[in-house]
Write a protein that binds this DNA or RNA. Structure first.
Lengths: 138, 138
DNA sequence: CACTACTTTAGAATCATTATAAATTCTTAA
DNA sequence: TTAAGAATTTATAATGATTCTAAAGTAGTG
């Protein structure tokens, strides 16, 4: 369990004022061992449950965007209708469980080297992301 | 240049009545050599340009969904804010050019075998899709 | 032709997200 | 510590994409 000063520092160090709202959101997002995959809606619900003080939806959006911009979160697109964010900002991949709509991390070292044979002249590769869709075996 | 009867047959064979609107949309989508990547907005614009008769936006949505359901189109998610459809329904991958927002197909045989080392018990893999983000080399 | 089911349509409704502008809070420096 | 200015939060409105609705139109069948 981190104490708030860790998050206050984190925020300050990237030029964000450590407001109550931002610190609260940090606690939910980053005070955990495992990767966290969430939608804005999920997060808003958790804030409502975890804290007595209300945080407006606009602030949730603002904060998530600020965090994404600073590299604290990654955005993941599965289907157009679902936007998830991921606290794991390393280079990695995902399983998407179609039976449950659940996302599972797939670390870089859990996927063999990916050889992109086609080259696009004048372009360089920024990232290679794999999405593995899975479902119940039967 | 295919004639309409090809599309009328295609529609009929999958239980869709070959209405004027659907045939028009078929002509735009499928009467071409190369894969076509498009958004609903793109398509609506093309319909407006190519045909004298108006097609309502609701019909465009209905038709695209019907085509997707029947496997004539694939949906592609890049960023949450962009939904593209793809007339290439084969198992394949994509480049996404971040400089131009352009999608480029990457066929299965242009990517080396992808070895997913992590297994999820009780689940089977439905698909493996790679998204390669690219940008100008400099 | 007449019937029925399928389609299309305009417009309303919904949902997620972004914009706005006023109120609040944070930081700083006196 | 307090005043000033900038950053932030907030409620609400605005936007944009998509879906819904219910009425009008159309295709297929006998």
């Amino acid at each position: 369990m981190s104490n708030n000063s860790v998050f206050i520092e984190k925020l300050r160090s990237s030029g964000l004022r450590p407001t109550r709202q931002r610190v609260q959101i940090c606690k939910i997002l980053f005070d955990r061992q495992k990767t966290f995959h969430f939608s804005i809606k999920d997060l808003a619900k958790m804030i409502a449950n975890d804290f007595s003080e209300k945080v407006s939806l606009a602030t949730v959006y603002n904060t998530i965007h600020a965090f994404k911009k600073r590299g604290y979160l990654k955005e993941i697109s599965i289907n157009s209708d679902k936007t998830y964010f991921d606290t794991n900002t390393s280079n990695h991949h995902h399983f998407f469980n179609e039976s449950t709509n659940e996302l599972i991390d797939l670390e870089n070292n859990e996927v063999g080297k990916i050889n992109i044979k086609k080259k696009i002249p004048g372009k360089k590769i920024k990232s290679v992301e794999v999405l593995v869709k899975i479902a119940n075996s039967n």
